[in-house]
Design a protein around this nucleic acid. Sequence first.
DNA 1: TATTGTTATACTCTATAACTATA
DNA 2: TATAGTTATAGAGTATAACAATA
Lengths: 157, 157
Amino acid sequence: MADARVTSPNPGNPADARVDGSDLITDIEFLVARVRALGSRAANGALAPLGLRVRQYAVLSLACGSISPTQRDLAEFLELDPSQVVAVIDDLQASGLVERTQDPRDRRVNIVQATPHGRSVYAEARVAIAAAREQSLHKLTTEERATLTELLLRVAF
Amino acid sequence: MADARVTSPNPGNPADARVDGSDLITDIEFLVARVRALGSRAANGALAPLGLRVRQYAVLSLACGSISPTQRDLAEFLELDPSQVVAVIDDLQASGLVERTQDPRDRRVNIVQATPHGRSVYAEARVAIAAAREQSLHKLTTEERATLTELLLRVAF
DNA sequence: TATTGTTATACTCTATAACTATA
DNA sequence: TATAGTTATAGAGTATAACAATA
């Protein structure tokens, strides 16, 4: 480890000042957890008027894609247990945003697709999410956001 | 948005292939959530033999620092509700890893400090966490890790 | 009157195991 | 025998509100 003693980026904050000096502040996992906590709180707030949460948003997004994922695909891609996917899709289906269709070639698998109403809600949700993201990432330039995306992508898959 | 249609970084994975084409894959919040899910799962696994979870590890880390944070400081820094901090510290105190000491200047506040045993356990935990981190970040060079840390730090605070 | 820590409650997320229907 | 989806359950994480002690 290069440098365990780091200055807080926000010395005006008394809470930051008091915990300054901990090596936690250079711990990528801690930083990721903190950014996730802030980000998903903001995203859930932005999605609340649409009756969605981030999980539902993620599944709806994939169901709006051109690929028509199975429930298993969704579980793997979203790092969820298949049983959790069931609950999210039950929820989205009850709201009329997605549909399950049995794959005729293998009747065990369900293909998940967005309804027209689902696509319309997703379009609104994207706008809401983008606004929240702009708020969260306002300190980063466009280039820095691209770099961050690229690095996270390499770690994520 | 520059380019919503992106190729999966891992075309060999059938799940990735099927959901490929979704704009979710360029969504920083989604990537952060996925990296966090993978990272905290790995970290919790690495900490399990020590009887810790990531939350307890974070509080213990700060309690081992030179600053002696109050419970309020911990809540703000870790983005936890003060009532959640109570539960984590109860847990760590029951294991003899940290102690609460009343601030003589303001008897409402508790200062949280690691015990000698807590410092010893923390030293072991750091090693375990570092090994898990090496696994999670093996695709990134040292320079890239530093860049990722710096960018996350700017978003986190 | 405001703040620190605390208790209580409810809801969401996560992890696991067992079951069914298909293959 | 193995896989996709489902049900059930328990434990951890998250969000709120109310309270006692202290300032």
